[in-house]
Design a protein around this nucleic acid. Structure first.
Lengths: 357, 357
DNA sequence: ATGAAAGCGCTAACAT
DNA sequence: ATGTTAGCGCTTTCAT
């Protein structure tokens, strides 16, 4: 744990200057082979590990990209505590991991590694948020953030210093690069299946209000309108507050106005709805169908398994990294915006038969 | 993307020295409130983002911990390509993510964030391995590595500079901190169930040879011996080479020497065995039972679901971070070694009935 | 309470 | 091909 050797130590041991040591590592062909070998040997013998801080300071680049992962875990106490009886811990936690964010993160990691970048991951919650994201911004050459996790003012400030990619929000601060998905197409495919194949007519959209969900709701409304079907205002659930959802659904049942199908803005809400229905003794999909959006792993674990629109999560992460590296290589005049396709995953909760899997 | 403002800019704007700017951030109470405010205002107006490189260089600490995640993806082509018909992509990839490593990583992330550290993630494969791990070692205050992913010589060198925690290997370079699990207890619980409850008598251990698996095999042998049961040498599978496993199992079948139960050294091998049996038309668990070890998510997705020994993966990650921070706070005289408990997860593949989930 | 100045370890001109 | 040297942006004594 003692202070490690530096270029100076290596240089001295190899009998050369520090510049030569530096060159031996960064531009091997620029130093005579014998020299290079003696430097490399000295480094090895000394156990030399270059300081990324020093290197970063000198070069003005760190060679790392950053991903700010919001602490969605604040929701855990609430989400884990109600609804299902807490069975084995093993079965509990899988509903919570991996979620959308985790799968995107994986794509980011893979792309970073294969492109030779290190990945700095930062996390935070409401309290530590701005501080944490600024901290990590100071450590990297480019940053990826999830939409709506940090104030626009903060990302704007950061984007004045390093390129920032915001993930998956149809709109937002325009100075940022952006990766989105084709919400309209996804909802379109889904509704086509529900209306055309299942012949459902009465729908209810469930979501917490945010830009992403609004885009999905708009696409949903458009499809219903195009089919001449009635459009109800969305059922506004609240993150982690499944009790609220339960109450709303109870009201619908009491008034005899349950829809044919609950179209949920994302998988996590759909899982809550599914659980709520089960608790209320309303059979799904027999009496009411339910669909999600995202394609998280948990959607395949539950029974009935969740019919949903699958996002290319790994690709989203990879694309963000690609944008960053491109931007670093040669800065584009205008922020990139790449929209990725989605695909329908028909499973059980819409009323289709169980898959093999 | 223009060069961002520095302490000098902030100092000038606030009409103070750079030292005061630094103090205003790091030791707010040491500067007069009015001064502090003008510094903070100036920083905000300028969009100041402190450089972690400069800070790290000056302080000798980066405030980040590292996790070196080996590129297990080299196995993908082989693993994904055979066996099951490639159904929807959705169903494919879930068998590969999240695996053990991913769940441990999650624990590392959570603990880092809650303790105020950033997390640097590095990845590599055989080729880039040493280079990549040295690179990330130069960026952090402490490093976590998975056992057997990098040469002992390299970790030793790095551990001379920063504390290193190696995860889950019963033995290894002794200069490293270490987090292990109680393999013997886990195998003991598992075998007790298989022998005591299911009355199995003829077992076959399946594994690729490594220290971890050897520890499990030894525990397994000990239990069998204690029950006066015959101990066969392990069936040596190869990572990703399920064809080999298939051949070995075919031989067993031909010679009429299929065991009552395949005890696999880990879940991934168990999944391969399960698939191989299915392909060979041998019903599991009806004719042959199969068990795993680890408790990865995929084990709950397959049918029959996998009976296994569950590791506290998140806790493993958290513990590693805890050791690192402790060590950074005040260096212990001797490397820490913490062993974590495991628990039996009885599911379908041993012959028990389907769970609710 | 604030400023001056000496590094931290490395890179990259520029010399030689 | 190799050496000299001036920073990179920040922290931290040590003065004032």
């Amino acid at each position: 744990m003692v202070k490690g050797p530096t270029v100076y130590d290596v240089a001295e041991r190899a009998g050369v200057s520090i510049a030569t040591v530096s060159f031996a590592f960064s531009q091997p062909h620029r130093v005579r082979e014998s020299t290079r070998n003696s430097v490399l040997d000295a480094a090895r013998e000394l156990g030399y590990v270059p300081s990324a801080s020093a290197r970063g300071l000198a070069k003005g680049r760190t060679g790392a990209l950053g991903l700010f992962s919001f602490d969605y875990l604040n929701l855990l106490p609430e989400a884990a505590g109600d609804g299902a009886k807490s069975g084995s811990e093993a079965d509990e936690d899988c509903r919570l991991f991996p979620i959308w964010v985790d799968e995107v993160q994986r794509g980011v990691e893979l792309e970073c590694f294969s492109r030779g970048y290190a990945l700095m991951i930062g996390g935070g919650n409401k309290a530590s948020g701005e501080r944490a994201v600024t901290d990590i911004a100071g450590r990297v050459d480019g940053l990826i953030v999830f939409a709506r996790t940090i104030p626009a003012e903060v990302t704007r400030r950061i984007s004045a210093r390093i390129p920032v990619v915001e993930l998956s929000d149809p709109e937002g601060e325009s100075s940022l690069h952006r990766v989105t998905i084709d919400n309209a197409s996804g909802i379109g495919q889904l509704m086509e299946h529900l209306i055309g194949f299942h012949r459902f007519r009465r729908f209810m959209f469930v979501s917490i209000p945010n830009a992403e969900n609004e885009a999905r709701y708009n696409a949903y409304s458009a499809v219903l309108a195009a089919h001449g079907l009635e459009v109800q205002p969305p059922l506004e659930s609240r993150p982690g507050a499944s009790a609220v959802t339960a109450e709303l659904i109870a009201e619908l049942q009491d008034s005899g106005s349950l829809p044919d199908c609950f179209v949920c803005a994302n998988d996590e809400e759909a899982l809550v709805v599914l659980e709520t229905l089960k608790a209320a003794g309303i059979p799904a999909p027999a009496q009411v169908a339910v669909t999600g959006f995202d394609g998280i792993v948990a959607g395949r674990l539950v029974r009935p398994s969740l019919t949903t629109v699958r996002q290319p999560m790994e690709l989203i992460g990879r694309t963000a990294v690609d944008i960053l590296i491109d931007t670093l290589t040669d800065p584009p005049a205008t922020p990139s915006h790449r929209q990725l396709p989605v695909s329908l995953a028909v499973r059980e909760s819409c009323g289709c038969r169980a898959q093999e899997n």
